[in-house]
Simulated assay, not measured.
Amino acid sequence: MPFITNKKSKETVDIFYEDYGTGQPVILIHGWPLSRKSWEHQVWKIVEAGYRCISYDRRGFGISSAPWDGYDYSSLASDLDTIINGLELEDAVIVGFSMGGGEVVRYLTDYGDAKIAKAALISSIIPLVKQTDDNPDGVPESALKDIQKALENDRVGFLKAFHNGFYNFDENKGKRISQAVLDYDFIVASHASPRATIEAALAWMHTDFRPELKNVKVPTLVVHGDADGTVPIETSGNLAAKGIAKATYEVIKGAPHGLNVTHKEELNDILIKFLKS
């Protein structure tokens, strides 16, 4: 199985990746608390459209190594840089879902865009999740602390219920996804490192990317669902599209956070069109 080793970080980290197809490379960065497997409905469409598609497990998730520390965004971006350099990629498109949007922006901040042609933020946490005086639509600090406490006290219990809201399952039961999808996500999420699950959550909860939006200079696709209850569009997609100079903004009506599954056809059409533009 293909692993690539990041020796730049404090602890040596082995990152598992899958690499299919030929052509311009498209790198998929998954959301929290899942793995590369969450891109199932996108990988084959990207390859089918004539691109090389690379997806990988974030450190601490899937079958990548799980160091004790190093879940801040600069450490995570160093893993992405290791993949880009290790596979000798040029003219790449980096696509981040939810938490993965942070790796996209931090990579461009820390490493620049010499090897990057385009970027995409899908249901992304960019630019800031937490509610502050100048981000009034964000998630209140008390709610974020409740998530942290739940993960520390009953991680699997929290994860068991988490994806209901991720997909707005109770509202769309039987219409968009099956119960089996929730069960599958729970299996994937529950097998992640407990330490990584908490530390990565703290990273997406508290990192403020607003000062870094100026570093996103490549053409960037922003896709968000207007029914996203996990990362509300008002404090994410709307602000990201406004703050990124070369943004193309697509709002999928009625789509929840996990629109890569519930609205996969719509997302795939938007993404492929952007890749070909």
Results as ranks from 00 to 15, higher is better:
residue 3 F to A: 08
residue 5 T to H: 13
residue 19 D to G: 09
residue 21 G to F: 13
residue 27 I to P: 02
residue 28 L to K: 09
residue 33 P to K: 00
residue 39 W to T: 06
residue 42 Q to S: 15
residue 44 W to E: 15
residue 51 Y to S: 10
residue 52 R to H: 13
residue 57 D to Y: 08
residue 60 G to L: 03
residue 62 G to Q: 01
residue 66 A to P: 02
residue 77 A to E: 10
residue 77 A to C: 12
residue 78 S to W: 00
residue 81 D to P: 00
residue 87 L to G: 01
residue 93 V to R: 03
residue 96 G to M: 10
residue 101 G to A: 03
residue 105 V to L: 14
residue 111 Y to T: 00
residue 113 D to G: 11
residue 114 A to N: 11
residue 117 A to G: 04
residue 121 L to P: 07
residue 125 I to Y: 05
residue 130 K to C: 06
residue 133 D to F: 12
residue 134 D to G: 02
residue 152 E to V: 00
residue 155 R to P: 06
residue 157 G to W: 12
residue 162 F to K: 04
residue 164 N to C: 03
residue 174 G to E: 03
residue 174 G to P: 03
residue 181 V to P: 00
residue 183 D to K: 00
residue 183 D to I: 01
residue 186 F to Q: 10
residue 199 E to S: 06
residue 203 A to I: 04
residue 206 H to K: 04
residue 215 N to F: 12
residue 217 K to F: 12
residue 217 K to C: 13
residue 227 A to G: 09
residue 228 D to M: 04
residue 230 T to G: 07
residue 233 I to T: 08
residue 233 I to V: 15
residue 239 L to Y: 00
residue 248 T to P: 01
residue 249 Y to Q: 05
residue 251 V to E: 12
residue 254 G to M: 03
residue 254 G to Q: 06
residue 259 L to W: 01
residue 260 N to V: 07
residue 260 N to D: 01
residue 261 V to H: 11
residue 263 H to D: 14
residue 264 K to L: 07
residue 267 L to Q: 00
residue 267 L to H: 01
residue 268 N to Y: 06
residue 271 L to P: 06
residue 272 I to F: 10
residue 273 K to I: 00
residue 274 F to L: 09
